[in-house]
Simulated scan of single mutants.
Amino acid sequence: MSIPTGPVDLDTVRHTLETTVMVDQVEIRRPTGTAPLDADTGLVGPVPTVPVWSGNGAVLSAHGLAAVEHLVGGRWLDDTASWYGLVTPLAAPLPQRGDLVTVTAAASPTTGTIGRTWQALDPGEASTVAVARVTRLDEVILT
């Protein structure tokens, strides 16, 4: 890990993150009610959701989050117990606990994230000094 020796230029760090890390398309949806019951099959359907935001971002594993620290030249994220993190620009809204995050397009042709869905474990992190929005995620399997 590199340690900055002088003042950190937050605009440069933000720009680096937005242009090299947040290169995938992600969608955030918020659950809005209860799942309907199909009376014919007895199965519960999906919980209705409304779109909250769609745009550039990244879903990174804990290993990916650690690698980004080296890219920006310093530690900018605390350790996490969750395995995944959503990184979005500061212009994106703060996700809420329970919001669903789906990767809709990925810049890398070898990604395994397209179409996978995660749930926000906590509200998106906020800070008086920030370079990106970071939200802890846990993968969910939707039927």
Rank of each mutant, 00 (worst) to 15 (best):
T34D: 14
T135G: 07
P7W: 00
T12W: 10
A67I: 02
A105G: 13
P51T: 10
P36V: 00
A107M: 01
T41E: 01
D9F: 06
A62G: 11
G45I: 00
W53V: 13
S61H: 07
V52E: 00
T102R: 12
L65C: 14
T135V: 06
E139Q: 00
H15T: 06
P89K: 09
V68Q: 09
P48C: 03
D38I: 05
Q119W: 09
A92F: 06
D122H: 14
P7E: 01
A105E: 12
A35V: 09
T88Q: 08
L10G: 10
V44C: 04
V47W: 03
T32M: 14
L77T: 15
E18N: 15
V26C: 01
G85Y: 03
L65K: 14
R116L: 08
A81H: 03
T19R: 04
A81P: 02
L71G: 11
V8S: 01
A120Q: 01
G55Y: 01
P48L: 00
S54H: 09
W53D: 03
I141V: 08
M1G: 15
Y84R: 07
T41N: 08
V72P: 13
V8C: 02
L121C: 10
R133S: 08
V26S: 00
A35D: 11
A39S: 02
R75P: 03
T20M: 15
A92W: 04
